[in-house]
Design a binder for these strands. Structure first.
Lengths: 226, 226
DNA sequence: GATCGTCTCCCCCGTGCGGGGGAGCCGGGC
DNA sequence: GCCCGGCTCCCCCGCACGGGGGAGACGATC
């Protein structure tokens, strides 16, 4: 493929770790059709930079000290006219922050440990308006080709369930092995509240216990393995 | 099991955090058959200490200021005759440094948040040159530089676990959502037997409960969704 | 013969889990 | 205005789960 005859894709890097920024810059700058036009260490600095630099793509960490990637994404999309595409960067798969960011309007995400070629690919795709949303695209990117979308029964169970937002959050955390108390701490609510959500989602999913619920989550592709 | 009649296993601790060293020392010294013979705060100090103390096992942090665990591992294996076994210590699962260290010749790894019993277990097994560790399989996977079929940590956890045939059967049934009683019925054994297998397998996988074990099963590809 | 690991089963015991109920608060929709 | 769904928190309660032990039977290995 030849990209050199197109306008280069301009990218703004936003990550609190200089090391990560340097790595991304090295990877992306190695491409003739990609240009890193700026860097920021926190979400708070993003908006003025976006206004000034007008990048095609913002590669943004989700976890940052002052203003995280979720809020920054919302802020950019809310306040900037003709906003750039936003790719959120994360260390962990199954990072619930990522889902928040995607809900906030991000166009895709990538893992820090992805291979250079995958990162480049992701940036190009997003720049072209292709939005890499959830598992299927990720698996494709990750090269774990061939995996199915999910067990139809499990998918159906999840769709029928019509979980509320909070229930989905709880299920994601359950699927990462957290206990009720740990989930409560993470969501900053009482354990009784978590138990309430758990009971509710178990009933909706037709699961007898949390283990069966997590199985359904995996089988349906609601959470993605590796 | 009685260990006291054997020669004690001698251990050298290498970690830049004094707190971690203290914790490891406390855990290991509580065992009659394990003796902590020295400590170092950085990889750079390891080689002379290894020459002087001749420990059976070096428990080494991967991330250290001057000389990290990867380079230190290489250095020890390259320059010391009849080198000790090396266990790398890490805070994070999904730590690519760990895989680097394994490629460099480390014999195993453990998470800082592992339970004392697991840490002790790991040190003993490594000291015995036993199969706890990453046999060829993991090193191969790590060296294949490629994507694995699953989350590397989960794969590693399963490899390291070395589950018995029965334990694997039980894990598969757990991963299908069966309760202990149901598994017992399926395998035509008593529920106490199943509980015994479950406890054993949880310990080996480093899982706190059956849900975490099932997650590991999915993440590693031990059971496949869909 | 002695040792070891696996599989089997048993005990006690604490607790996290999940069921079943209820209740207050808030925002949106009728 | 009222009602309803979602989120929050509370109670009681039974039980499966998991940790801590131990022990006998069997086969493989040394």
């Amino acid at each position: 493929m030849i990209y050199a005859d197109r306008m280069p894709v301009t990218v703004l890097l936003v990550d609190d770790e200089p090391l990560v920024r340097a790595g991304l810059r090295a990877v992306l700058e190695a491409q003739p059709d990609i240009e890193v036009v700026g860097e920021a260490a926190d979400g708070a600095a993003v908006i003025p930079l976006v206004r000034q630099l007008r990048p095609d793509v913002v590669a943004m960490d989700v976890r940052m000290p002052l203003l995280d990637g979720i809020e920054a994404t919302r802020a950019v999309l809310r306040t900037v006219a003709d906003p750039p595409k936003i790719v959120v960067i994360t260390t962990f798969e199954n990072d619930e922050y990522v889902y928040e960011a995607l809900r906030a309007g991000a166009d895709g995400f990538l893992l820090k440990r992805a291979r250079p070629a995958e990162i480049v690919h992701a940036v190009r795709l997003v720049a072209e308006g292709e939005s890499l949303l959830f598992p299927a695209a990720v698996r494709e990117l990750a090269g774990a080709h061939g995996r199915l979308r999910g067990n139809p029964d499990a998918v159906a169970a999840l769709e029928r369930a019509a979980l509320t937002g909070r229930e989905e959050e709880v299920l994601r955390l359950m699927a990462r092995g957290l206990s009720n108390a740990e989930i409560a701490a993470r969501l900053v609510v009482g354990t009784e509240t978590v138990k309430s959500h758990v009971s509710s989602l178990l009933a909706k999913l037709g699961a007898r216990d949390r283990t069966q619920a997590v199985i359904t989550a995996y089988e349906s592709g609601f959470v993605a393995p590796g």
